[in-house]
Amino acid sequence: MDETELRRMSTGHVFCVIAVVLSIYIPTLFLDDFSFLGTHLSWLCICSLCVIIVHILFLLTLKPNASSKKSSLANKFNKLTKSCIYFLISCFLFHGIIVLYGAPLVESVAETFLFAVLLSSFTTSRCLCLLGPNFPAWVRVFSKDGALSVWDHSLQITTVCSVVGAWLGAFPIPLDWDRPWQVWPISCSLGATIGYVVGLLIAPLWIYWNRKRLTYKSR
């Protein structure tokens, strides 16, 4: 267990949390009638953009997968396009799953799709930054006892937390309270965001707590 690695990861997580929080407050300075509930669609765009940018910065500054060797420019470009395609695929996949869960097919397509984008920016973009467009590696990380490093663990925790948060977020929708946040997809995106933030905060703590068991396992 590398203490410095853990510290670097925690700082990265803090930045992610700050990005999410700022995405709610900063736009009110520039845009007039912006509010989380009122103009939810624009918030969805802004939040996903912020999170993706922070993840890319993360990749550039902290270099979590340091083992990858320096590669040529063409290779990098190739990787970039591949990542974009992966991201798009994941958006459509999430969209499909959300529709399967009962979201209307034709009505409010924009809402559903932007929610899918938000989910993919919480999950897929992080995977892309940490693991690269390398599908076998993803499968390895998301299988039982497949995590080999601190980063893998944090990835597991945040991804699961965001997805579970979105899943739980669907629960208040059938209630007859008539609150503005029960409108599709606000409660779900709220759930996903809260799940993501909680995941970010929990991951370092959980890893710190289990550090002995983890070092044993990763060998």
């Binding site: 399967l100 869960y101 009962g102 059938p174």
Partner: peptide, 22 residues
Amino acid sequence: GASSFIEEEHQTWYFLTNTLCL
């Protein structure tokens, strides 16, 4: 325990079976 969830119980089951399939 919630009356709306009883009225909309089908949503609960659709949600659960969906998750089960996933």
